[in-house]
């Protein structure tokens, strides 16, 4: 009997190992599926953001143009573009007068001011997509002067 038990034990052990490998492979596969789903979602958001970023430059230009060219048609074009961005989930950040936060904006210049570290001018607007920063703003930040 003892002689018979040995091979049985060996087979049981092998089965346990094989089963474990199988379950691992299955788990690996399921994890991969989840990862792929996530990757596709991420890629979708990234592609969308990438495209919107390029068009934001046009909006920047239109806003600069508005300073010099007062034209109803031009304003309509700009508003239309903004409406499209809003529909795509893009939100403008309202940072003027707030405390400077590097997560939301890039500081490009220091301006003398009454307080420290306050955004005193927006050079280029910043935008969010959903609750993520799509494009940080470019701002001038105040520095207290005596």
């Amino acid at each position: 009997m003892a002689a018979k038990k040995e091979p049985l034990k060996k087979i049981q052990e092998e089965l346990r190992v094989t089963n474990d490998k199988y379950l691992r492979a299955l788990a690996d596969y399921q994890n991969l599926e989840k990862r792929i789903e996530q990757t596709i979602t991420d890629a979708h958001v990234r592609t969308k953001s990438h495209v919107i970023l390029q068009f934001l430059e046009v909006l920047d230009d239109l806003e600069k143009a508005e300073i010099f060219v007062k034209d109803e048609g031009l304003k309509m074009i700009k508003d239309k573009l903004i409406r499209i961005f809003v529909e795509l989930g893009v939100k403008e950040m309202d940072l003027f007068g707030t405390e400077y936060d590097p997560h939301l904006a890039e500081a490009v210049e220091i301006l003398p001011g009454a307080d420290d570290n306050i955004i005193s001018e927006i050079v280029r607007k910043g935008y969010l997509i959903g609750d993520k920063v799509l494009r940080p703003a470019q701002v001038k930040v105040s520095k207290k002067t005596n």
């Binding site: 953001s49 590097p102 490009v108 210049e109």
Partner: peptide
């Protein structure tokens, strides 16, 4: 991919705030 969605992290540090990368780089001028 970094949390900022990029494959590289700028080797820039704000040690006081413990901020690293793109976010730290945005404060370089001030």
């Amino acid at each position: 991919t970094s949390k900022e969605g990029r494959n590289t992290i700028p080797s820039v540090v704000d040690p006081e705030k413990r901020i690293v990368g793109d976010v730290a780089k945005r404060q370089m001028i001030i």
